[in-house]
Design a protein around this nucleic acid. Structure first.
Lengths: 247, 247
DNA sequence: CGTCTTTTTGACTACTGTCAAGCGCTGTGG
DNA sequence: CCACAGCGCTTGACAGTAGTCAAAAAGACG
């Protein structure tokens, strides 16, 4: 039973936070951080498959993903689903406020919850924080633009390859590692929903990439055998991942 | 020759700016605005088809579109193009900084240019401005997510319909107007590049929508005959357009 | 009016989706 | 420790949507 599994790691004191360098609060000094630690309302633990943020809930809170993966999605009236942002540790969830899409956990996950009114108060007082906030959203825009290019102008094999490169790179300081095991918890159905493909076709694309000896994806683990060749095949360039200042 | 055509309107004094209610500086008082007017470095005039922002130029400047339309795009190694954000008057261009995609003018356009370092200084001093900036970036995020859903999960007719609804709504305070002429300067080739379709297929989709008496698009002018029915057909909901505070 | 761009239409190709069935791993219960 | 149940992954056959190529019609501009 899922309940038996070890829970995801709980966040500790903010000033020791291992994901802070990636997250909203990176520009703050330790002293400022201590102030926030008081402010941080709660921690949220979510199991794989459960809702991290429900429709509309974003009007009240913002979360920082501490451990685990999650994704935002939208369901069209005919039932088809499109996955938008894919969140990894350090990412900010719910930045769009009331207009935020619902978010679901891919793996068991733990998150730091911030009330939106408090966040707003903090942003009003700390311009550096507001700028950091904007930068995170700007980065998210860069990722969305890249995926838009995928859905619009890449075929199935290239889409799958480009997403694997991106997710591997985001777990490896921006560089897709060669011949190393990389966690890849997304199911093929979810990959399909993220890439605008059917799950079956994702499978066929993965088979092609495996046959070409470019990558292997088995039991939630990805291995890139030749990231450079894969990037060439997919027309993928890591530039959009850079932490380039949005302002 | 294009040069003969009347130039686009030049922006006047900031405090009288007609697009300010939509733009970055909306939260500022008239007094604060006067300070900025001094700061505003230049105005840029661009003709239809020319570059508004070149690759990498975003590292140095940010622009506010004053008049005309523009779009950001990305070119894949095989030459295919994907249009990302579509900019209308009041929109902020280049918010992603160095990572911004190149931007091209759809029509003749005029823009207010802000040096990035000055903008940064302003944001640091005016928290309201920093929050406004973050909100604009968050709104752009919402538009990108919606288009991602289009490319991933809507068929050609729905994609074209949804984009027409969005662009009509954005020119009409968020509501797609019924039976009114709406400017729609994008060529079918550009619509295709925005929607991940070939220009020919865009044309077929438009023909279908015309046949169904849902809309007419002729000589750069769009007319929605039944926005409600069109929205139903496309699974389109205007919620994502709302100016809902991102923070 | 002549030229160039944009739009339209048609025929054919190809990629991707859908439906269906079989396989396999993982975790559960005996 | 082994059989079973479920979910996820694979594979195949076929259908349908969209792309490509080609050419003509319709506008836009000088």
């Amino acid at each position: 039973m899922v309940t038996r599994r070890a829970p995801p790691p709980r966040p500790g004191p903010c000033r020791l936070c291992p994901v802070r360098p990636l997250a909203l609060f990176r520009p703050l000094s330790e002293a400022e951080l201590d102030a926030i630690a008081t402010t941080r309302s709660t921690v949220r633990l979510v199991r794989a498959g459960e809702a991290v943020l429900r429709r509309g809930e974003g009007a009240n809170i913002v979360l920082t993903l501490f451990a685990g993966w999650a994704f935002a999605y939208r369901v069209l009236p005919d039932g088809r689903r499109q996955i938008g942002e894919i969140f990894l540790p350090g990412d900010l969830i719910g930045a769009r406020g009331a207009a935020s899409d619902p978010v679901e956990a891919v793996t068991d996950a733990s998150l730091c919850v911030l009330s939106r009114v408090r966040l707003r108060a903090m942003l009003d007082n700390q311009p550096a924080l507001a700028v950091s906030f904007a930068q995170l959203v700007a980065r998210s825009n860069a990722l969305l633009s890249e995926r838009l290019a995928s859905l619009g102008r890449r075929d199935a094999v290239q889409r799958v390859g480009a997403l694997m490169l991106e997710l591997a790179a985001r777990q490896n300081a921006g560089v897709p590692p060669k011949d190393e095991d990389v966690p890849m918890p997304l199911r093929q159905t979810q990959l399909g929903d993220a890439l605008g493909l059917s799950a079956e076709h994702v499978n066929r694309a993965l088979a092609t990439l495996r046959r070409e000896r470019l990558l292997t994806l088995r039991s939630r683990t990805l291995r890139l055998h030749d990231p450079a060749a894969l990037a060439r095949l997919c027309g993928w360039d890591s530039a959009y991942l850079s932490e380039a200042p949005g302002v």
